[in-house]
Computed example of a mutant assay.
Amino acid sequence: MNATLQLMNNSFDSLKKKDPFSDEILALWVPVASYWLFSTFFHLLTKANIPYFEQYRIHSIGDMQKRNKVSMARVLSMVALQQLIQVVLGILVLHPLDPVSYAIREENTINSITAFFFNHYHSIHFAHILAKYIYLVLLPCLQFLSAMFIMDAHQYFFHRLFHMNKFLYKHVHSHHHRLYVPYAFGALYNHPIEGFFMDSLGAAIAIEVTRMTPHMSMLFFTFSTIKTVDDHCGYAFPWDPLQFLFGNNVQYHDIHHQSYGVKRNFSQPFFTIWDKLLGTEMSIKEAEKRGGFKKNTT
């Protein structure tokens, strides 16, 4: 216990000395800021009640007010608590980088890759360009994609466990399902235990396993936060890139919040692979047959 407290004290002391726009600090506050900004956008869109956008709403405002079993004030307070835990975990997990040491390591790695390709192609210029492309473009892309798959696997099995175990569902996961009609601010509304084990810990494991830099960690966690908010926004926009590029989108997740799909579509936040492999997927067509996604009026 004392060792943990000492670690936290050392981490916070180090944090105080950091530039708020350094990669390590950005990785802590940018995902949080993105949640509030993106959710506020959808909240204002709902309040504006613009006919063009309302045609894409999955549920009516009246349905939202009638069916949801938790106040927005409660939702926002629980989200703030989860994000506080998330920031503390981030302080403990993120590895501060010494710019000089990092630059030397980067140069040495690029030089090693360059030497490898020079032995094959006998062109130092081509070998160096290829090495920089691999290190600065290909490797980060592979890290990002790998982190997406790791987070998906982590969240699928924890999410399914929270549903299949009656005790965990009743006392933990049922909090999130008080939102029968999801909305953006409710994307991170969870019991703190679920928020820690499924969301914060899942991201931390993905970042740690792929050995992302703090800068890459910030990009990954911000993207996953925005994706999660979009999955709960309540609008099925055909031109939303997050919705037409990913099968796991706002309609896919909305099925899971309905009584007919509560034990289906556990996958989140990116792909539907685990639902397909393990037979827990409910398609939008199947949901429509069960009365889902009817045109709503406000």
Rank of each mutant, 00 (worst) to 15 (best):
L5W: 05
L5I: 14
L5A: 12
M8A: 15
N9Y: 10
L15F: 14
D19M: 05
D19K: 02
S22T: 07
D23K: 07
E24F: 10
E24C: 04
L26P: 01
V32Y: 02
S34Y: 01
S39N: 01
T46D: 15
P51E: 14
R67K: 13
K69T: 04
K69E: 11
V70E: 06
V75C: 05
V75I: 15
S77D: 06
V79I: 03
A80D: 11
L84A: 12
V87T: 14
V87A: 13
V88T: 03
G90R: 03
G90I: 04
V93L: 09
H95N: 13
P96N: 05
P96V: 11
L97V: 15
D98R: 05
P99N: 06
V100I: 15
I104E: 11
F118N: 07
Y121P: 00
K132Q: 02
L136Q: 10
L136H: 12
L139D: 05
P140E: 07
P140G: 10
P140L: 11
C141K: 09
L145G: 07
I150P: 12
D152A: 03
A153L: 12
R160I: 05
F162Y: 13
N165E: 11
K166D: 09
F167D: 08
K170G: 09
H173I: 14
H175K: 11
H176C: 10
H176R: 05
Y180T: 05
P182Q: 05
Y183G: 02
A184V: 06
G186M: 04
A187T: 00
A187R: 00
H191R: 08
L201S: 07
L201G: 10
I207L: 03
M212L: 07
M216R: 11
L219K: 01
F221P: 00
T222P: 10
F223K: 03
K227L: 14
D230A: 10
H232A: 15
G234W: 07
L245S: 10
D254L: 05
Y260Q: 09
K263M: 06
F270W: 13
D275R: 03
D275M: 01
K276P: 02
G279D: 02
E281D: 12
M282L: 07
M282H: 06
K289R: 12
R290D: 09
G292P: 03
K295Y: 09
T297D: 08
